[in-house]
Design a protein around this nucleic acid. Structure first.
Lengths: 206, 206
DNA sequence: ACCTGAACACCGTTCAAGT
DNA sequence: ACCTGAACACCGTTCAAGT
């Protein structure tokens, strides 16, 4: 039975580079975990290789021993975030509700880490959410869109989501959960507007 | 007769803070102008107060004598860019085509300055394009939207535009004009999809 | 193999000192 | 009033040196 498929829970990153049973080693997971904490509190702009090292209680060089640079670290962070996105069941609801809940999950996952979406948007080459994109594409194709329609719909949805994440949620430290909820609701309403436009586009094609 | 109203052309910034006839003074306009050149070539990330001062052939402190800090400079740059946006005539075409051409002008103006849209998105408090927002609001109200509908439509369009600007156009130095045109076309198609959804929303209200 | 910490080449911003 | 340039407090990244 095809149910909702979330991937994995917390900081899971690639294969184990070092045996975690050994005491005193600093794994990639620990670095990514600490990075999450800092980004949550101070945003991506507040994430500093020095601050990160201090929180891990190691020297600056030790962090660089596990992670080649800050960008690579943020790629790992993004990958981990994507693994938390919940993919809706393919047999429940129409394509619109499936796309709606998938993208709402994306926003929920990313909106808790200020500046992350902005960083991802600026580095789409390295950090594109391929699973999400492929799922969206499949969903639209199953809904009998043709290739060109899928392309337009995907780009439109994509830019709408990116815009909300970058512009809607304060990129700096926003301790106001109330405003986050308001933007979330606004996003959901606007998403339905966009999906409505996509549907009309679909009807024109058939 | 209400025709297309562009504001002013190139680097025009506020009132004159110093008499430009005096030799040897460095006006705010000169700083903003040099900033434009650098952003065009190197993006906002490549704009450095030192590089800017070097291009103006003055010491670092001289730049800070005219402009309080880098953020304030970018606010001036944004204001100047907004003045280049072309506002469509209110008596030609329907509301959809008016919104379409206004937002296309916004994209045209901002897409030439890599990283600028991303910076604006992160500092909406200081840098919101008020004229554009007000014009959009009036256009939608004239098209018989109610207050709530206008709000949703505005937010949706806004986020879509922001997403395209931040994600669609490479934020770094993109010497490929071909890809810029492709993204522009894609934006225009997606914008029609969004406007289509907005129109259906309007019909539901009436 | 893993970690340390000084060092390098940058930033934005400030400010005493000059003209 | 306007400008200079050294100085401060940061960055990301590197790398000889230790264990």
């Amino acid at each position: 039975m095809p149910t909702a498929t979330s991937r994995q829970p917390a900081p899971t990153v690639s294969a184990e580079p070092t045996d975690p049973s050994v005491r005193g080693v600093m794994t990639e997971d620990m670095i990514v975990g600490a990075a999450f904490e800092i980004i949550e509190e101070c945003g991506v702009d507040g994430l500093t290789m020095r601050l990160l090292s201090a929180r891990l209680d190691v020297a600056l060089g030790a962090t660089y021993h596990r992670v080649p640079n800050k960008h690579a670290l943020l790629v790992l962070v993004a990958k981990d975030l994507y693994s938390r996105v919940e993919f809706p069941a393919t047999d429940v609801g129409d394509w619109k509700s499936q796309v709606h809940s998938l993208l709402l999950s994306v926003v929920d996952v990313l909106s808790g880490y200020p500046g992350m979406a902005a960083y991802i948007s600026r580095h789409m080459d390295d950090m594109a959410p391929v699973d999400v994109a492929e799922t969206l594409q499949r969903t639209l194709l199953d809904a009998s869109f043709d290739q060109e329609g899928v392309e337009t719909a995907l780009a439109t949805l994509f830019f709408y989501v990116a815009g909300t994440l970058v512009g809607g949620f304060t990129t700096d430290t926003s301790p106001l959960d109330a405003s986050r909820d308001r933007v979330r609701d606004q996003f959901a309403r606007g998403l339905d507007v966009v999906l409505c436009g996509v549907e009309v586009e679909l009807q024109d094609e058939r």
